[in-house]
Amino acid sequence: MIVPQWATVSILLVVVVLAGCASTPQWPESRQPDAVGFKERHLLTEVPFYPQEKYQCGPAALATMLNSQGHDTDPDALVEKVYLPERQGSLKVELVAAARSHQLLVYPLEPELKDLLTEVAAGNPVLVMQNLGFGWWPQWHFAVVMGFDQTKNVVILHTDTRKAHEQSLRIFLATWQRADQWAAVMLPPDRLPATAKPLKYLTAASDLESTGQLDAARTAYSIAAKTWPDQPAAWLGLGNVAYQRSDWQAAAKQYSMMVERFPDMAAGWNNLAHALKKQGCDIEASAAAECAYQLDDTRFSGMIDAKQDTERKSRQCPQLQCPL
């Protein structure tokens, strides 16, 4: 089918006009009973500032985030970790990975202004990604939100070479939305983000675990287990961290606590079986493996890998109670 040229042009025009009429930005309604009440103005004055050098907003923003959590690093040291000279920029994923390697838990926020402001109001600076160009000609930028002022209608950021720059809410929202409203807090694992939700937080903790930051992961899992005792993954995570450390006894203890709370979860029984086997509790290990098989016979075989060596016979084997 041949589309006449005028049709293409008019469709393009309509798209451009539609894209232009974005709605006026608004502060989250704080009068609603369930909403978080913000003060008019918040400014995290103790967040350090590093002016970016040419193109290097990534290292500068990352240094701000790390050092606001008590680390001592400077943008120059981070340049080689997160800056790609050929691309003249940094990738989001590299900033996240670098923060994790500093034992910080990276919690990506829901793409909501309200969540961003809640974190700032709780004292947590927020790393944001912005697109200062157009959707089709992007110019990516990283900045750190460290305040806002509802009366002046501004968001306050450490950005490029400007310290505590007051950016109008309209401009901030427009540039942030063009970057899919990506925002994250980077916190020591013993501090829960103000907007933390259980599964998302546990996913962030398991990212620490899978990148080998076992200490940080364990701290985050314990906080999660205390905050949301109804989340099985927190207990499983604590067990898995101990298991990776070859601390079979601690692992078995955590898995036992997990199956006690969540007797229907086959994964807990399965991992318990492995930890018990390592510990030398052969009979109990078989019983746990059988239990996992009974709960989920498509996934577990009821057998433990025979090649695994038993380190030594243990006399302290737990009593198990399979729900089936």
């Binding site: 546990l202 996913t203 903790a205 398991s206 990212d207 675990e209 899978s210 099985p232 993954a233 499983l236 995570g237 898995n240 298991y243 979860m265 994964a267 399965n270 991992n271 492995h274 577990f300 433990i304 890998d305």
Partner: peptide, 8 residues
Amino acid sequence: AMVGTGEV
């Protein structure tokens, strides 16, 4: 055969 946390 261990079940990872991310899997769950």
